[in-house]
Simulated assay, not measured.
Amino acid sequence: MNPTANVDVARAVEPHEVGKALEWEPRVGEASWWQTRQSRESLVERLLGLFTDPGAGLTRDKTRRRGLGKLLDWLEGQPGETWQDRWMASGADDAGFEWTDLPLQGRGTPKSHWRDELATGLVLLVAGQAIRPSYPWLLRQRVTVMLTETRAASDPDAFQRLEQLAQHATPTARSDALNKLTWIVIRKGGLVSDITVGDCIELTAALEEHHFRGSAGRCSTPCSRRPACSQPAHR
């Protein structure tokens, strides 16, 4: 074949192939976004407005307020310009399921409710998009309330439509799909409509790695047999 013809074919194919490849790339995680840059005062006001309810039990709301306050006290002592910077600098993301050990260091023997309060405060920070933990951290937590609150706060209309569309699916399949979409929204931000094919591929790879390494025995049934664990929250 004429060498010139080969060059012409390559030029004709290249833009299409490049565009196709880009479709399979996950969105690049933002280094900073408006929720993570909020001042403490603005952040607390926004999160308590989103996640506390005068009609709900006072005990729950008091726990959320205390937990958020204690967690922010600790994060403010970490280096960084944003809440995400401080979260990553603290080592909590790498600590996985044992992350509450870090803010409790030096406080003697921790009481059980201290960990519960910190975990509750973190639910607000994650569901309120102040921090975006990594997939390895998220997949080890399996905190059902974190996923539920994220769906209610981040893109409620879209998640409600998805639940309606999945009415005839099995409960396991419906939970699996909703959990996966919620993890992507937590990690990447934005709306359900912003999710790309590349985002889904990235999460699939993270799930495979998580299943390969195991989930530290947190669930009684191996997670490899339950693609998206929908067991009650592990706290």
Rank of each mutant, 00 (worst) to 15 (best):
S39R: 00
D53M: 00
M88I: 00
E23M: 03
R226V: 15
T196D: 13
R132C: 05
A5N: 06
W99I: 11
V9S: 06
V44W: 07
A130L: 05
L58V: 09
Q167F: 10
W99D: 02
W24T: 07
A12Y: 05
Q105L: 14
G96M: 02
R142H: 09
D176V: 06
S39K: 00
E149Y: 10
T52M: 07
W33H: 06
D94T: 12
D116L: 13
L207F: 08
R161D: 14
P110D: 06
G198D: 10
S134P: 08
L207G: 02
V7G: 01
R64D: 05
R225Q: 14
Y135E: 07
S90W: 04
L147F: 01
R60F: 02
R27T: 10
R226C: 11
W183V: 00
H16V: 07
G29N: 02
R187E: 01
A153V: 12
D53N: 09
A206D: 04
Q160V: 11
S154D: 08
G80S: 01
Q167G: 13
L22R: 15
P232Y: 11
E17R: 12
H113E: 13
Q129F: 11
I131R: 00
T36M: 05
G189P: 14
I201H: 02
L71T: 13
E149F: 12
L47V: 04
R213M: 07
P171T: 01
E23W: 00
V197R: 15
W74E: 00
K70G: 02
G128F: 10
R66M: 14
T36L: 05
S215F: 01
M88A: 00
W83N: 02
E41S: 13
F51M: 10
L139C: 02
G19M: 06
R37V: 01
E117R: 13
G67F: 00
A233T: 15
S112E: 07
R132N: 03
S90A: 08
R37A: 09
D194Q: 01
L48A: 09
A169V: 05
C223V: 15
P156E: 05
E23P: 00
V9E: 11
L191H: 03
A216P: 00
T204K: 06
V192M: 08
L181T: 03
A153R: 12
E208W: 04
D85C: 12
S230R: 02
Q35C: 03
R226I: 15
A10I: 14
